[in-house]
Amino acid sequence: MGVDFNHLIELIPDINTAFLQTIYMIAISLVIAIVIGLPVGILLYVTDKGLFLQNRSVQVIMGFLVNLIRSIPFIILLVALIPLTNLIVGTTIGPSAASVSLSVAAIPFFARIVETALREIDKGVIEAAIAAGATPWMIIKDVLLLEARSGIISGITLTLISLIGFSAMAGTVGGGGIGDLAIRFGYYRYDNTIMIATVVILIVLVQFVQLLGDFVAKAVDKRK
């Protein structure tokens, strides 16, 4: 199995389009995951037993919903969300359509990471803030998010890497992007060149995201 470089050059426009579609999908999904997943993760933490917004009902309901979505394999989630996808974007194929399923999968994933990062905070810091008369919003903004920022950034990195893998899977059902290119050209046409090229692109993209995420997480970690 080798690479035909002349053939690869001919496919550059298709590869470029697929790459941009992948970036588009994961960018939209990551933003939605952060905007919704961050508050959900915070809520999962602060409503837990012994915390300043303890609420058993909210904790159980939110936890159940998060675990429910996370337990569904992504390929099944893609199919299950077809009606919702069609309702939101008016189509079930293409990168915009795939972004719906990617977002739904990423929100609970990131929420649990945020919750885990918050649980690593020394509760003495929270108790000190409460004793000083800080409001719940002040504790969340000035204590929780500040103390857990390194872990949250690492969570964003992990979520982004997962989205890259999920976006490739979305290509199997016409979601566009690198995965779609690999399926249409590499798998169906037995094109080894495009298969190798897409794998290399995904590897490089993941490595870049991981290195950048690690660098930023260490830069904001006040413990180091």
Rank of each mutant, 00 (worst) to 15 (best):
V100K: 04
S101V: 04
K49M: 09
S29K: 07
L77T: 08
S103L: 03
S162W: 01
S29L: 05
N67K: 02
I130F: 12
A33G: 12
L77P: 15
L160C: 14
Q59Y: 10
T157S: 13
I36S: 03
D48E: 12
P95V: 04
S96Q: 15
A97T: 05
V66A: 11
M138P: 02
G151P: 07
I126F: 12
R119N: 15
F109Y: 01
I164D: 03
P108I: 01
A80H: 08
R119S: 14
I130M: 13
L43E: 08
G165F: 00
Q59G: 08
K123M: 10
L163W: 03
R112I: 09
T85S: 11
G90P: 12
L51V: 08
I72H: 06
S162H: 03
S167V: 00
V58L: 15
L84P: 11
P136Y: 00
V89R: 07
G151D: 00
S162P: 04
V35A: 13
P39Q: 04
I72A: 05
K123T: 08
V66W: 01
V35I: 15
A98F: 00
A27P: 05
A132S: 14
I153S: 02
P83K: 00
S154D: 11
T85M: 08
G41E: 02
N86W: 06
A33S: 14
I75G: 14
I107G: 12
A134R: 10
P95D: 04
Y45H: 14
P108W: 00
M62E: 03
V100Q: 06
W137R: 15
L44N: 00
I164K: 01
G41Y: 07
R56K: 12
T47D: 06
D122Q: 08
R112V: 11
Q59W: 05
E120P: 12
V60W: 06
S150K: 12
L87V: 07
L160I: 06
I34V: 15
I139E: 02
T116S: 13
L65M: 05
P108F: 04
G133C: 03
A97G: 11
A117I: 05
G133V: 02
L77D: 10
R149L: 11
I121L: 09
V35D: 07
I36Y: 10
I140E: 05
V66K: 01
A117K: 02
A33P: 09
P136I: 05
I69S: 06
L77S: 12
Q54A: 09
N67S: 11
G165C: 04
W137Y: 14
L146Q: 13
T92N: 11
F110D: 03
T91Y: 12
P95T: 04
M62D: 09
L53I: 00
L145G: 04
F52L: 05
E115N: 14
T47H: 00
I140K: 02
L51Q: 15
I113T: 12
R70T: 08
S57D: 13
E147M: 10
L68F: 15
K141C: 13
F74W: 08
S29T: 09
A168L: 07
